[in-house]
Design a binder for these strands. Structure first.
Lengths: 187, 187
DNA sequence: TTTAATACCGAACATTTTGTTCTCTTTTAT
DNA sequence: ATAAAAGAGAACAAAATGTTCGGTATTAAA
């Protein structure tokens, strides 16, 4: 990809992320984005057809990294409650989120957080499903695996939302402990 | 309230709900709403300042009923796992959702579902919090009550979303059983 | 280093959507 | 019956969207 393209793409991403942290998605105009990104109108539409597509691209970029590293983690440590390992994938995820504080969590705490969370949850779902399939875990037989997978990823995402909205007073390790406490009994 | 106002308000609500089931929120224009509702432009703006306000009003109306009747239910039956009652508030909620199929679940399955779910979850949170406070339940002491409340309402909402997206193959009673199975061990 | 491709700019433009203002008619409550 | 309120409808300004064009600068590849 052309360096110029990379630069403008990044400029647009950054401008958009900044704006999302300030105001709600629906109130952001293309004009504001290109003004802040300092690119021409034509350029914007050459990269993204709509504002929606821009958002999707931003989500893909942001969560691509996080989920990617989490996937690596699962391949070595397993998903979660393999005995009492001090670190679960979920702890890893939370730490990663906290490190990229300014980037990701800023967006999660804004009015448009739901859009990101859905994107996040979709990725999480894949991650967990893989583990369920690979490990052939013996789970609660009365409950469909699909339900359980959704329950885990859903609970996680809701927890993150709760965490961020409460100004992240807990440490990732603390949260991980809580999360295990409400998920492990179910498996 | 004037009968005319009620009528136009309803006409706008219905038109809007119809449109939400067809296309995403951001792509719906005021023009489309008033065309379908068959009201004048001026009239629309006399009732709602913005499209966002319309959405909020619609949410309030839809979930007001459901949560209201659920609240009644909790006052007599308690929140949830008081022994092994065949019906929990959550089952009641699910049944109620299924009954109002065309109204509410249609909206939940559309692209704008997140907006409704957040609204729904907020209401649920209140419901659960009340019960926690009133009953002075002895819950898991290692976990903050706030976390638990959020976990319950969050899991419920995610479950409903999963249910709707999977075309509601399960009965409310079935879902209730699953939900109890993943929540009761935690309390 | 030259060259051809292409990404960008900026300005102008048509189109769409928004939100307001006006007059006139219909409906409502009393 | 009447005054108050609500809606219709058209016309309007303003803002936002999305496209087209010719000219400039950057890039990758020869």
């Amino acid at each position: 990809m052309d360096r110029r393209q990379q630069k403008t793409r990044m400029a647009i991403f950054n401008a958009f992320a900044d704006l999302l942290a300030e105001k709600s998605y629906s109130k952001i105009t293309v004009q504001e984005i290109i003004d802040r990104a300092n690119v021409g109108r034509t350029t914007f539409y050459a990269h993204f057809e709509t504002k929606d597509e821009l958002l999707r691209a931003l989500c893909d970029q942001l969560f691509g990294h996080i989920i990617g590293s989490a996937a690596d983690c699962t391949h070595t440590h397993g998903l979660y409650c393999d005995g009492n390992a001090p670190e679960s994938v979920f702890c890893h995820l939370l730490q990663h989120l906290q490190e990229n504080d300014n980037n990701i969590l800023g967006l999660l705490s804004c009015e448009s957080s739901e859009l990101f969370l859905r994107c996040f949850k979709d990725s999480l779902n894949e991650l967990i499903k893989d583990q369920f399939v690979n490990q052939n875990r013996k789970v609660n037989r009365d409950i469909p695996p699909d339900f359980l997978i959704n329950h885990i990823s859903g609970s996680f995402v809701e927890m993150v939302l709760w965490w961020v909205k409460g100004r992240m007073k807990q440490t990732p390790e603390e949260l991980d402990r809580y999360f295990r406490a409400v998920i492990e009994p179910v498996l």
